[in-house]
Nucleic acid binder design. Structure first.
Lengths: 159, 159
DNA sequence: GGTGTTTTTGGAATAAAATTGCTCAAATTG
DNA sequence: CAATTTGAGCAATTTTATTCCAAAAACACC
C-alpha cells in the first residue's frame, strides 16, 4: 500500500516516533491541525502499515543491566540448516535484543546483548551462545558510552 | 530510586515493553489485576524512572528505506576534542539511528545508519561521515536479513 | 474566470478510557 | 491477638478519543 504523504503526515510521524504517548490533542497542536483531522490522519497511517508498533523503552541502568555487548559471529558453514538452528536459539534468548544477518568478510551475524555484568556475560557466551552448533568465531565489543540512541527513522526523503 | 519489583510489576513492564498502546483495562487483564491497582502500579513505575519513554516504531520497507548499514569507525587520536566534534556531528545526522562508543582493538564507534539505497549511502559516507576530522578508519556491513529486532530488555534477573 | 465536484477541515455531540476517592480485605508486625 | 499497613475493587468524575455533519478549501472542467 503506497501512500503519498504530505508535510503534515511526515510531521505527525516525526512526533510519534519521538513520543507515542502524546494525546491526540497535543499532537494536533504540534502539527497545526484540529483534533479530528489529526486523528483521521493517524488512523490512515496506522492502517497503511507504515506504523509498525508502539513500545515502551526502559532504562537499563535502573534495572541493573550494566553491560551491553556487541558481538560479531561467524559460522563455520553457510548452510540453511546452520542458520535456522542458530536463529531459533537466538530468538529464545531474552538477553539478545537484536540479531542481524549481514554482509562482510569478517562475520555473518551482529548481535546486541544486554546482561547484568561481565560474569553474566561470560556465562551467556560460554553457556549459551558458543554452544550453538556452527558458531566458529565470536568477537565481543562492550559499550562504553551511548552517544546516540534513536529509534526514529529518517523521513527527510519523503518531502 | 531503588524499587523492589514483584512479579506483577515485572509482568507489567514486559507487557508494556512489547506494546505501549495497551489500554489500562487490557493491561490489567493480562497481569491479573483490576484496572485501578494496575494503573497505580504503572504510575509508580513511571515516576521511579525505570520507564524511559514511549515511542512509535515505523516500518523501513514502507518508507523506501531499503539499506541499513552497520559501520565501525576508528579515530586517529583519542583526544576529547576529536570525540566531541565527532559526536556532535553524528547527532545531527538523521540517517544515524545509533552511535555507541565501544571497547575493542578494531574500532572506537559502532553506528547504525538507515538510508534509501546504496547511492545515498555512498553520498552519506563520502559527503558526511568521512569528512568529520579524526575519522581514520571506516568499515561497513550491510543488513541482509533481520533475525531479531527487539527493543525489550531482559527482566528475568529481577524475580 | 466562474461553477460544480471532490476532498479536507473544524466544531459539537457522543462514547470510551483514565483517574480519583472511598471502602473493604489481606498480610504484616508488635 | 489486635493494630497497622498495604493492596484490591467499586463507583463517580474527569479527561481523552471518536464520530458525525456542515463549512471551507482545493481541484478540474468548461
Amino acid at each position: 500500500m503506497k501512500l503519498d504523504l504530505d508535510k503534515i503526515d511526515v510531521r505527525i510521524l516525526q512526533e510519534l516516533q519521538q513520543d507515542s504517548s502524546l494525546t491526540n490533542q497535543d499532537l494536533a497542536d504540534r502539527v497545526g491541525l484540529s483534533p479530528s483531522p489529526c486523528l483521521r490522519r493517524v488512523k490512515v497511517l496506522e492502517e497503511s502499515g507504515i506504523i509498525d508498533r508502539k513500545v515502551t523503552l526502559l532504562k537499563r541502568s535502573e534495572l541493573g543491566l550494566k553491560l551491553t555487548a556487541y558481538i560479531q559471529i561467524s559460522m563455520d558453514r553457510h548452510t540453511p540448516d546452520r542458520f535456522s538452528v542458530f536463529e531459533e536459539q537466538v530468538n529464545s534468548f531474552p538477553e539478545v535484543r537484536t540479531c542481524n544477518l549481514v554482509t562482510g568478510q569478517n562475520c555473518d551475524y551482529l548481535l546486541e546483548v544486554v546482561v547484568e555484568d561481565m560474569e553474566d556475560y561470560h556465562d551467556f557466551l560460554l553457556g549459551q551462545l558458543t554452544r550453538i552448533p556452527g558458531v566458529s568465531g565470536v568477537q565481543s565489543s562492550f559499550l562504553l558510552r551511548s552517544v546516540k540512541e534513536n529509534t526514529s527513522l529518517p523521513l527527510g526523503h519523503l518531502i
